[in-house]
Computed example of a mutant assay.
Amino acid sequence: MEEENLISKKELLKITDISYGQLYRWKRKNLIPEEWFIKKSSFTGQETFFPRNEILDRVEKIKNFKEDISLDELASIFSPNLSTVYLEENDVLKQNIVSQTAINLYKAAHKESNGFYFNELLFMSIVDRFIKSGKASLEEGKLVLDTLEKNYKNFDGRYCDVVLIRKFGVGLCFLMLIPNEIYIESEAVLVLKVNAGECVEELKSKINL
Rank of each mutant, 00 (worst) to 15 (best):
L105Q: 10
C173K: 08
K167D: 13
D161F: 01
V85D: 14
V59P: 10
I55T: 10
L23F: 01
L87D: 12
Y24P: 01
S76C: 03
L145I: 04
L190T: 12
K94I: 03
L190H: 11
L71Y: 09
G169N: 04
S186M: 08
G157R: 03
E185F: 13
S125D: 12
S186V: 08
V170Y: 07
N90S: 15
Y106C: 07
N5G: 00
E60S: 11
R58Y: 14
E112Y: 10
L13V: 07
F78W: 05
F116H: 06
A136Q: 09
K142I: 04
I15S: 06
N96L: 03
S8C: 04
V163N: 13
I15K: 01
E3F: 06
S83F: 03
K63R: 09
R166N: 11
D57G: 10
S8D: 06
F78Q: 06
K10C: 07
L172W: 05
V170K: 08
Q46V: 14
T101E: 11
K167S: 13
D146N: 12
V59I: 15
R25V: 00
A196M: 03
V163R: 06
K206F: 13
N90R: 14
L138H: 14
L190M: 12
V127K: 10
K150Y: 04
E47C: 07
I207Q: 11
F130K: 11
I32L: 04
F116K: 00
V200M: 02
S41D: 11
K206D: 12
E149A: 08
F168N: 14
G157S: 09
A196L: 06
E11C: 04
Y159N: 13
F49P: 01
I69A: 06
N151W: 01
M1W: 05
N53I: 09
E149F: 03
E4L: 12
L23Q: 05
